[in-house]
Design a binder for these strands. Sequence first.
DNA 1: GTGTATGCAAAGCTTTTGCATAGGT
DNA 2: ACCTATGCAAAAGCTTTGCATACAC
Lengths: 125, 125
Amino acid sequence: MRRKTTQRIAIEQVFKQHERPMGVDEVLEYGRDFVESLNQATVYRNLKLLVEDGWLKRLSHPSLGTLYERTGRPHHHHFHCRVCNRAFELPGCPLNENAVPEEYIVEDHEIFLFGVCPSCAKVTE
Amino acid sequence: MRRKTTQRIAIEQVFKQHERPMGVDEVLEYGRDFVESLNQATVYRNLKLLVEDGWLKRLSHPSLGTLYERTGRPHHHHFHCRVCNRAFELPGCPLNENAVPEEYIVEDHEIFLFGVCPSCAKVTE
DNA sequence: GTGTATGCAAAGCTTTTGCATAGGT
DNA sequence: ACCTATGCAAAAGCTTTGCATACAC
């Protein structure tokens, strides 16, 4: 049986407050605002549990490493800005299913776009 | 000036012989067929150099970790089979550029598809 | 001969695990 | 009271780095 610990509740809060994919270090940092004693091992263990429970999804970001984000959001993908070095959620799905050879059984997909985000593009102009 | 060492030539050979993304461990293993004494640190150093030189491209695979593949091949993406746990190169590009919000400046993209590859699908049938 | 690249070992990261204890049920 | 989850520290991966020597030029 899974217990409702203050640590896991804190970690869930972190994801509810920040609507973008986050790494372990960020979760730990923000989580300590709720539970000062929060330990890194606890974060790792809970992220794993939350992924198992289907509450979080694990992403492999090409330059930021492993990130986690809430499940249950509308289908979307990610954009990484090379200027501010952050990952954003992109609404919609630019995947054209018909362009995949039909011998492959596609069950899931992950798309990362790279470039410059709207707010960094403004500054560079 | 960059020197043409037998180790780097061996590593290049490995990529010429295997046309799929490979991890450090695989490069080391196959590379030792050419240079028995090949060291892991040398592999890491040369993979880095080859990426700098634009001869290799680094990929972040969601479950296999960091992989490397030759550049200069036609534009393509990757498929990961959950049965045989290997990454394949998929010809073509299923990205629909028009489906990306236009405020974002897209410079590059990475797509991973997950599922079952043709040969594993046959066995499971 | 000069200086970069290698092999080895040590050190840095990130992530996992063992163990005693705190705390949820 | 029971037994899972936590905190701490050690350990296990993966990757980088320092240093003496080998070897490409």
